[in-house]
């Protein structure tokens, strides 16, 4: 049974057609890529899945539940996590607190427990602290736990965003251009990291990316968008040979570089 099923997803911004008739069936454990030129509607799809926008039309079934009309925090709490194209960490918060904040929906104590710092509060906070530190140590960020997140170098900020997304025990991870601004060697590290994270945390991943090397290297399946419409879908090799894709996207980039 697919973990995510998107049917006829369509979204208009006023007269602008951002996403049109987008379909997707995602099996658990898959890693798929969505590529397309700027403004093709890729990030809009993430925003629709996570409830930032309400789609004009269409269905998003995640784990048997239709996500359309649900609050973002509800969707996140029920197993979807995402990162952002432009890093959106809580800059003034420590690395540890960035992760602990993301545990919000995991925490099982009441408002009264929080205001009184009751025994149950102490137990839960201890658990969250240990869990967050363990997660950080898996990503080699544990020694930077007390550092303000804005003070981290760029690459580590990207990594912290992934850690923060994982704090909620997601089943589906949406990565929005994780390689933006990275150099080739950093991209190689990132490719390994994504594959390792996927296995380690048993995730299904949708990846939006411009870096062809990354997408072609790790995705099992790729969807290509142009002006909100799906123009191709298939394995990396099929995509590389698809004439429409070359015309809309790959060809242009080759000339540009």
């Amino acid at each position: 049974m697919p973990i995510l099923q998107i049917k006829g997803l369509t979204h208009f911004f006023g007269g602008l057609r951002a996403v049109f008739d987008f379909d997707l069936d995602l099996e658990p454990g898959e890693l798929i890529g969505i590529i397309g030129p700027n403004g093709a509607g890729k990030t809009t799809i993430f925003n629709l899945i996570t409830g930032v926008y309400r789609p004009t039309r269409g269905e998003i079934i995640f784990d048997g539940v239709n996500l359309v009309g649900k609050e973002s925090n509800w969707i996140i709490a029920h197993g979807v996590a995402r990162t952002f194209q432009n890093i959106r960490l809580f800059k003034e918060l420590s690395v540890l607190d960035n992760v602990r904040t993301a545990c919000y929906s995991q925490i099982k104590y009441s408002v009264a427990d929080a205001l009184l710092h009751s025994a149950r509060f102490q137990r839960e906070e201890e658990r969250i602290l240990n869990e967050a530190m363990e997660l950080l140590s898996l990503f080699n960020l544990d020694r930077l736990a007390d550092e303000k997140s804005k003070n981290l170098p760029y690459g580590l900020q990207r990594r912290l965003e992934i850690v923060r997304a994982l704090a909620n025990h997601p089943k589906l991870l949406l990565l929005d251009e994780p390689a933006a601004g990275m150099n080739p060697s950093e991209i190689s590290d990132l490719m390994e990291l994504i594959q390792w994270v996927k296995e380690k945390f048993n995730l299904t991943i949708i990846l939006i990316e411009h870096q062809m090397r990354l997408v072609m290297g790790i995705c099992q399946r790729i969807k290509v968008l142009d002006f909100g419409e799906t123009i191709a879908e298939g394995s990396p090799i099929e995509i590389q040979q698809n004439p429409r894709v070359i015309e809309a996207y790959l060809g242009e980039e080759e000339q540009g570089e």
Binding site: V52, S72, L89, K91, E92, L93, T101, Y104, F121, E125
Partner: peptide, 21 residues
Amino acid sequence: SNLGRGTVSIREDETAAELVG
């Protein structure tokens, strides 16, 4: 507490706060 961390995360970036749960 988690409420306080939530409060500060709203100050830092409200949309991101909502999108980490």
